[in-house]
Design a protein around this nucleic acid. Sequence first.
DNA 1: CGTAGAATTGCTACATTATAACCTAAGGTT
DNA 2: AACCTTAGGTTATAATGTAGCAATTCTACG
Lengths: 166, 166
Amino acid sequence: MTSTVYAPHDHHTCITAALANAKNLCESRGARLTPVRKRVLELVWQNHKPTGAYELLPQLAQDGFNSAPPTVYRALDFLLELGLIHRISSLNAFIGCAHPGQDHTTGFFICRLCGNALELSPERMQDVNTRLAEELGIIIEEQTIELSGLCPSCQHSTAAANGANA
Amino acid sequence: MTSTVYAPHDHHTCITAALANAKNLCESRGARLTPVRKRVLELVWQNHKPTGAYELLPQLAQDGFNSAPPTVYRALDFLLELGLIHRISSLNAFIGCAHPGQDHTTGFFICRLCGNALELSPERMQDVNTRLAEELGIIIEEQTIELSGLCPSCQHSTAAANGANA
DNA sequence: CGTAGAATTGCTACATTATAACCTAAGGTT
DNA sequence: AACCTTAGGTTATAATGTAGCAATTCTACG
């Protein structure tokens, strides 16, 4: 899936898969995927662009949910805790996790033009980590790796402010 | 210098060097290192821990400077622009650049215990970048690489909430 | 000089992002 | 039902960052 973020794809399958993953994970952990939490997850997965918490408020309101900041942040915290979404610090935004369930290190590449974020594979990140940890004698517990620039699609279409997918 | 962040060192030389670097860089660019800017740089270099913008306000006030947020942010922006400091997104904080003058990619390791941040060497970061860019076909323009965990010192002294240097 | 233009700073207000605190409601267990 | 735990509602506020405009300082050039 990670390799298709910058190419046309049936995004509906991304959403469906994300919800199925969430359901499974919650069941196995005895956590409750309540309506608000489920809806927030869907909204975060609307596309592959990082979404700000305050963008979600009106969308939740439209669906008849309560839409005060704490509601959204609590749902986001829940999803973060379970590893169903990630936070992109450099953008103060959130994005669906492409590898839920696995305990993994995270890294993102965010295209400056289309805004779509590609989650780098855990293996790749683990590689980088291991090398750094060994060379520097450090123990890495958390990481924020956020690269930005131009994705393969946008390198060829400079007008593509809205990229290859929905 | 980067290798001594987590070891005892005469931090005064860090500050002196940073100011000298700033002076040179400003002269060569025709930029003005005004009193506020210089003071903000000094304050950021007080230690190797990332500093929040709002922490600087009272310190500037104490020195008789204006201390409204725009003043600090403008000074910080100026220093960022010149590459004299970096911003740590995951902490909303700023830290002196260990490799000023060079056009370089940045990465940090921040110790969870002592809070000191080690700027990873440009060469190392360039390595990582080149590999990722080649493998993924992306063009990396900016990056936020922020690792946190335990530095070599703190791995051995769990009580060391205040690390090896000032 | 001295004055025009640019850069810098002062200042007020406000935008954005996030959390505290406290109460109510819902669900799960015995 | 009685209880307890978890989740959500609500209000207020904290923390971080910017917009916009007036006042000042610097610089360059005649």
